[in-house]
Design a binder for these strands. Structure first.
Lengths: 113, 113
DNA sequence: TATACAGGTAGTTTTTAGGATACCTAATTT
DNA sequence: AAATTAGGTATCCTAAAAACTACCTGTATA
């Protein structure tokens, strides 16, 4: 694949990073790679995220069809978030991100504590 | 690879996205995957970036040893930015990002113009 | 002579992401 | 009856990211 495919190939990088970037989206998607998670499970595992931020990020991921919200029980309410079938496609990319990070982040961050 | 390696595997996603994320860094790295580029080449190809932002982003990428700045001619001054040897390792990841994006961004962005 | 290009810096302002705080319904537990 | 859990919403606020504007050195070009 040639990235040289000028504005085509580069804009796509920005688009993908819109989806996966920011402080939380990558982490949320990474957690959902394993298995579906409930709202408060995500909240616990994403240390320090607030309810309102988590809600916003999940709504965004729903809007772009990466994640779906499923009410699995009505009363008491139980909600589950999972990757859509289409969203599953992100797993590979997340694996590559993790792989690169495990190999290289120490070098790259050596001077940054 | 198991992402389930709890906080280990997830924190690394955030770290990598720190490097590659934001509005410009991914695009800058993607452009430098092809070949070295001069300051104003980058500025032209990254439509709408300002000099000061480009300078900041390049300085950051230099600090973390992903990119190096090389004065290739003194007078008149000619400066070239290229991936460091270590920075080259990002190529694969960029390719995966582009690959995923080309396959999936239409679906994902179908409702977003 | 003056205008443009190359490669920037400095200072200020705007925009945006994310955080803080408070609050909501309904059920369950103490 | 009161507190806790589950799953949020609404509003405001702040800190950081990026943009805007102006300016700089030095060379080449018209």
């Amino acid at each position: 694949m040639e990235i040289k495919t000028k504005q085509q190939g580069i804009k796509v990088v920005a688009d993908v990073l819109d989806i996966v970037g920011g402080k939380w989206r990558g982490q949320i998607l990474a957690h959902l790679c394993d298995d579906p998670k409930r709202f408060n499970e995500l909240k616990t595992v994403l240390n320090r995220i607030t309810s309102s931020t988590l809600t916003k990020e999940l709504r965004y991921l729903e809007d772009i069809k990466m994640v779906e919200r499923k009410i699995i029980q009505d009363t008491p309410i139980v909600v589950e978030y999972r990757l859509t079938e289409h969203g599953m496609s992100i797993k590979d990319l997340i694996y590559h991100i993790v792989a690169w990070g495990l190999k290289h982040r120490d070098t790259v961050f050596e001077k940054k504590g």
